[in-house]
Computed example of a mutant assay.
Amino acid sequence: MIPSTSSLTAALQTVAVGAVIYFWMRRKSKPNEKAKPFHVYYGEAISFPFPMKVIGSLPEWIRIPLMAKGSKPSPPRDSIDILGQDSEVDPYEKKLILPGKIWRVRYSYLMSPEFKKAMGSLFGNVNAAAITNAPDHLKETLEKDIAAAEMYDTMSEKERAEQGGDSKQDMFIAKINIDGDDNALLIYNPVRLHPQMIDWINTLGEVKFIVSGSSSHTNFLPDAAKQFPNAKIICASAADLKCQGVGMRPADFLYDVLRDEVPKRYSGRGTYQDALEALQGQARLFHIRGDVCTQALFVLVHKHLFEVDLLYVN
């Protein structure tokens, strides 16, 4: 039987799409010969599972809508939700990084079993094979991670809450000078903000900027925007799209949008350059683009570099 013309056309289209994806995934990014290497050595490159490579290989105009549609912000539960406000378990660990200038808040929470399973499917599960294939300097860390994960898997939600939680996320707060105000605050990568955390932040100064460091870490961004309604929001277009889907006001600045190439859908919105001007030289922004799965932003303030969720997939 001779295939119909429509069948042949469909087959050729499928082959063409497959070829495009294949060669896109195998492309090599041209190195920047003028760039100075970081002084931190992370060892050998990590080989991500196939689904992650496919997502990372998609062009941004496809990847961003997919990310926005499939991962709307949904804050996880923590020890306060489960044990109550009067619990002795504090989900926040504060650390002074630079006296009077920079603070780190490490927030502990409980990862839902569904999300943990999804992350395992996307990134691959850490197991004995992963330890064997890992660089020597990472094997001890992986062994500890596996032991901790196995311990938490046997616990009830209350027991995990009593341990503080099984996942952590860092938030950084920097005091900067905006319009002559030395008590202006910049929050980078906001975490869940319970009343006691909001009260503590207000003792440091007035929040003028909320910066999302990644288009993936957005679970707590809408709440931060709600708690500090006068703060300017700086985030990626994907983060803005996701968070507006759950009611957040539009971000003031989109760091992945440049002033000379603003898409019509973002007309009137602040760009990367606008964000830099609003910061008045108090912080520098570095949008990492081109070969990462997420939209990521480094922030340099007081000679300290803030970074989160930089996922290389090539």
Rank of each mutant, 00 (worst) to 15 (best):
residue 186 L to V: 03
residue 209 F to Y: 03
residue 235 C to V: 05
residue 109 Y to K: 11
residue 168 K to V: 14
residue 211 V to W: 01
residue 210 I to F: 02
residue 188 Y to G: 02
residue 228 F to K: 03
residue 166 D to S: 13
residue 207 V to R: 00
residue 162 E to L: 07
residue 184 A to P: 00
residue 222 P to W: 08
residue 232 K to M: 04
residue 202 N to W: 09
residue 100 G to F: 05
residue 92 Y to D: 11
residue 194 H to K: 07
residue 197 M to L: 15
residue 146 I to G: 08
residue 199 D to M: 07
residue 191 V to L: 10
residue 96 L to K: 15
residue 229 P to K: 13
residue 234 I to H: 00
residue 227 Q to E: 12
residue 130 A to N: 09
residue 119 M to V: 12
residue 130 A to P: 06
residue 170 D to Y: 05
residue 115 F to M: 12
residue 174 A to L: 03
residue 156 S to Y: 05
residue 194 H to M: 07
residue 178 I to P: 00
residue 180 G to C: 12
residue 117 K to G: 13
residue 198 I to S: 06
residue 103 W to E: 03
residue 120 G to A: 09
residue 229 P to Q: 07
residue 158 K to A: 09
residue 127 N to E: 13
residue 105 V to E: 03
residue 135 P to F: 05
residue 149 A to F: 07
residue 135 P to L: 06
residue 142 L to A: 13
residue 129 A to W: 08
residue 234 I to Y: 02
residue 191 V to R: 01
residue 109 Y to W: 15
residue 105 V to H: 05
residue 200 W to H: 09
residue 224 A to W: 01
residue 147 A to F: 11
residue 210 I to Q: 01
residue 233 I to R: 02
residue 104 R to F: 06
residue 184 A to Y: 01
residue 173 I to F: 02
residue 226 K to L: 14
residue 150 E to G: 08
residue 142 L to Q: 11
residue 239 A to Y: 03
residue 154 T to M: 15
residue 145 D to T: 08
residue 217 H to L: 13
residue 159 E to Q: 15
residue 124 G to W: 06
residue 97 I to C: 04
residue 118 A to E: 10
residue 185 L to D: 01
residue 199 D to P: 05
residue 193 L to N: 04
residue 118 A to V: 07
residue 176 I to Q: 02
residue 234 I to S: 01
residue 220 F to W: 12
residue 156 S to N: 14
residue 121 S to H: 09
residue 158 K to S: 06
residue 174 A to T: 03
residue 98 L to W: 10
residue 101 K to Y: 04
residue 95 K to L: 09
residue 130 A to E: 13
residue 145 D to A: 09
residue 213 G to R: 04
residue 175 K to M: 04
residue 225 A to N: 04
residue 204 L to E: 04
residue 157 E to W: 10
residue 226 K to F: 15
residue 221 L to V: 15
residue 165 G to E: 04
residue 158 K to T: 08
residue 136 D to L: 12
residue 200 W to E: 10
residue 110 L to A: 08
residue 140 E to W: 12
residue 158 K to G: 03
residue 98 L to M: 15
residue 140 E to R: 15
residue 120 G to D: 10
residue 91 P to Y: 08
residue 206 E to Y: 00
residue 184 A to R: 00
residue 203 T to V: 09
residue 202 N to C: 10
residue 100 G to E: 06
residue 97 I to D: 06
residue 199 D to R: 10
residue 139 K to H: 06
residue 176 I to K: 01
residue 107 Y to W: 13
residue 223 D to F: 14
residue 165 G to A: 13
residue 116 K to V: 07
residue 206 E to A: 03
residue 236 A to Y: 04
residue 140 E to S: 15
residue 117 K to E: 15
residue 115 F to H: 11
residue 129 A to K: 14
residue 107 Y to D: 05
residue 191 V to F: 04
residue 155 M to T: 07
